[in-house]
Design a protein around this nucleic acid. Structure first.
Lengths: 242, 242
DNA sequence: AAGTGGTCTAGACCACAGA
DNA sequence: CTGTGGTCTAGACCACTTT
């Protein structure tokens, strides 16, 4: 027994949801009109609309003026991709990789990095350059930038997943990240590290990762061999706001 | 002037949102009580609550019984990226594009397409080839494959967003999609359409879009000029979802 | 006790879609 | 035209938090 007694709109919502997931209200069909539900259940239209709003938020129905409320899904949504570090991502997909630390220095950031990390002019960053390989074949050359102020040094074990390092040893919990991906030709130095000829197409991945309060904590720029890596993401089609 | 006049709750919501983002209502403080807003703006309490609901959905405020409605952040909460068609995506970002239909035929699908669309051997697909340009410059050459069984023909207006076509005219509501992105060299025919030399790096975007019951409804394969387009996605880290 | 958001009612008019 | 969801009003009682 729920400690909070079910309200009318909860009861109505759960009733309708049951009909939808059981298939009694089939996908593509309309459920009874709001005024019909109002009469059937002896509640006000506001209460009906409150219940329907919840179903809409759950992505089960879609209301259209002049048409009705249509069932668009009968079961819970597929899970959306979540932010993963490169190492984590490849590990999840069963591809063991090795990391070679090319360099790790504390230095003033380049302007575009300082900009993306929203840093004051005086603050230094840890600039980490790593080459990631799979089965001995170079896969990606990555530049990671992390504000020095979080207390990270150059002596950490950077062959471990960086996010694990940030979360376990420095208690910085990443909440979200923005990835930007383009295709471009490999530059001279990248080509050398990646063991390809200059001009070979590479995936250019840029990421800003954020901790709580929307503060940037990491900026990554990576050149990934296009012939060896595929960036995968699952996206839901949501309701548009505004 | 907006073609749809702003409703009262839109006006109130936008007013309050302005106060919040400008800092006049500071984070951690309460905004005026619902009955005060009701009196101040001369609207009903339902209208006030409708406006506040939107602000809650945006993650700007949190209502607590007995306390009030507290400002919890001054910037809109981060939203996960949602699946958008190419046209929709560019439109949202303010880049008007034009589409040129290279070809539109109903034909038996290539094996890898039939595989990805999980089609029986006998079923044909609509194979759509379009060149998308921005300001006269070719941007992407796209191949779209849609099962013929949904009743889509070759005479539709394919310059419109394809998802709009599917959703409005064919009542197929896309629920999610999987994108796979790599970098590769432009092939001869692509180079010609995209007005670049063969071998130029392009973003290779593959997508399977699904409707209810995890049924594939569309397979896309696109070659996008890496120098003109950036694939952007915002991902949350960790679990928790509703 | 006073004030808050949460729920709920019983109406009303509107714009839009479809027959 | 009818029926639909979208908006809006002017009340009401409740459970909860704070004073």
């Amino acid at each position: 027994m729920p400690r909070t007694p079910a309200t009318k709109y909860h009861q109505l919502r759960d009733f309708l949801r049951g009909r939808i997931v059981s298939g009694e209200y089939e996908v593509g069909t309309t459920i009874p009109a709001e005024r019909d539900l109002q009469a059937t259940f002896g509640v006000s239209r506001s209460t009906v609309r409150h219940a329907l709003r919840d179903l809409t938020d759950l992505g089960l129905v879609r209301a259209t003026v002049g048409v009705g409320t249509v069932v668009i899904r009968s079961r819970p949504a597929v899970q959306q991709s979540s932010l993963r570090g490169f190492t984590e991502d490849l590990a999840v997909r069963g591809t063991p990789t090795t990391a070679h630390v090319v360099s790790a220095v504390i230095s003033p950031p380049p302007p575009h990095v300082r900009d993306r990390l929203e840093l004051p002019a005086t603050e230094a960053v840890l600039h980490l350059v790593r080459l990631r390989s799979v089965a001995g074949t170079p896969l990606a050359l990555m530049h990671n930038f992390v504000p020095a102020s979080i207390g990270i040094g150059v002596d950490e074990d950077f062959t471990r997943p960086l996010y694990e390092l940030l979360e376990r040893d420095h208690e910085r919990f990443i909440t979200y990240g923005r990835d930007s991906i383009t295709a471009r030709a490999a530059r001279e130095d990248e080509a050398q590290h990646l063991d390809v000829s200059p001009g070979t197409p590479v995936l250019n991945l840029k990421r800003i990762a954020y901790v709580e309060h929307d503060r940037p904590i990491e900026y990554v720029e990576a050149a990934v061999r296009g012939d060896l890596y595929e960036y995968n993401v699952t996206l839901l089609r949501g309701k548009e706001r505004r």
